[in-house]
Computed example of a mutant assay.
Amino acid sequence: MKVLVWDWPTRLFHWLLAICAVGSIVSVKIGGNAMNWHFRFGYCVLGLVIFRILWGFVGSRYARFASFPPSPMRALAYLRGKVSETLGHNPIGAFSVYALLLLFGGQAVGGLFANDDIAFEGPLARFVSSETVSLITRLHKLNEWVLYGLVALHLGAILYYRFAQKTDLVGPMISGTKPGSVGDGADWGAGRSVLALVLAAASAGAVWWIVNLGKSVQTF
């Protein structure tokens, strides 16, 4: 039978993050006025990461961080075939999630202080020195390549599981379900949907406040 593993907020986060990552890369490569969209995509990434962190504590069973704590020992045991597959994130997948949140979150936060050395700068750049802006901008550009590598590993893992392990990772991230037994599914109800919407609104509001902080300070 099919059971719910990935709730809709987790799935929506996953696909929106992918869209924003692609949009951010395309817009920064185009440059010029497209940089406005680069910043917008970055703000969306920040909001998504904030939401996912919150959802990691109050979401459904397999979305909670408690269900996939980072464990180097379990990861090594998994690579040696001593840990069986689970419905949720396996030990390697767990590290991937934490790395994505850390690096994408750091990239989005760094973008708030970075500039393009021409006409665009992050909304919080005015609060730090020019030397700090230059340093953060360099780190922002360097981390871009780290993210490329992480995304390549992520896609490579998907292909490996699909063709070598005969396991589809993409389908369940669309449907939310996997084959399982009664009692293995995620705990879900209408209340969690409401909670997800509240947290999404709060995350968006937090990003809006951060982005407009410079304007309000300047006004007063």
Rank of each mutant, 00 (worst) to 15 (best):
V28A: 10
K29H: 15
K29G: 05
I30P: 14
I30N: 10
G31N: 04
M35C: 09
N36V: 04
N36Y: 12
W37Q: 08
W37I: 09
W37M: 10
H38A: 01
F39W: 14
F41E: 10
F41H: 04
F41Y: 12
V45G: 06
L46S: 08
L46E: 06
G47Q: 11
G47R: 00
V49T: 03
R52D: 00
R52L: 01
I53Q: 06
L54G: 14
L54Y: 13
W55V: 06
F57Y: 05
V58N: 07
S60Y: 03
S60A: 13
Y62P: 07
R64F: 08
P69H: 04
P70H: 07
S71T: 09
P72S: 11
R74V: 11
R74A: 13
A75R: 09
L76V: 14
Y78A: 12
Y78W: 10
R80W: 05
G81K: 12
G81M: 13
G81R: 13
V83H: 10
S84N: 13
S84M: 10
E85C: 04
T86E: 12
L87P: 09
G88E: 05
G88D: 03
H89M: 08
N90M: 10
P91L: 11
F95Q: 02
S96R: 01
V97D: 09
Y98M: 02
L101K: 01
L101F: 00
F104G: 00
G105L: 00
G105N: 11
G106P: 14
Q107N: 02
A108S: 06
G111F: 02
L112R: 02
A114Y: 11
A114C: 13
N115T: 09
N115L: 05
D117P: 04
I118L: 14
A119F: 00
A125Y: 14
R126G: 07
R126P: 14
S129T: 12
E131M: 09
V133C: 01
L135A: 09
I136G: 03
I136E: 02
I136L: 15
I136H: 08
I136P: 02
T137V: 05
T137D: 00
L142S: 00
W145A: 02
W145C: 01
L147Q: 02
Y148G: 03
G149T: 03
L150S: 01
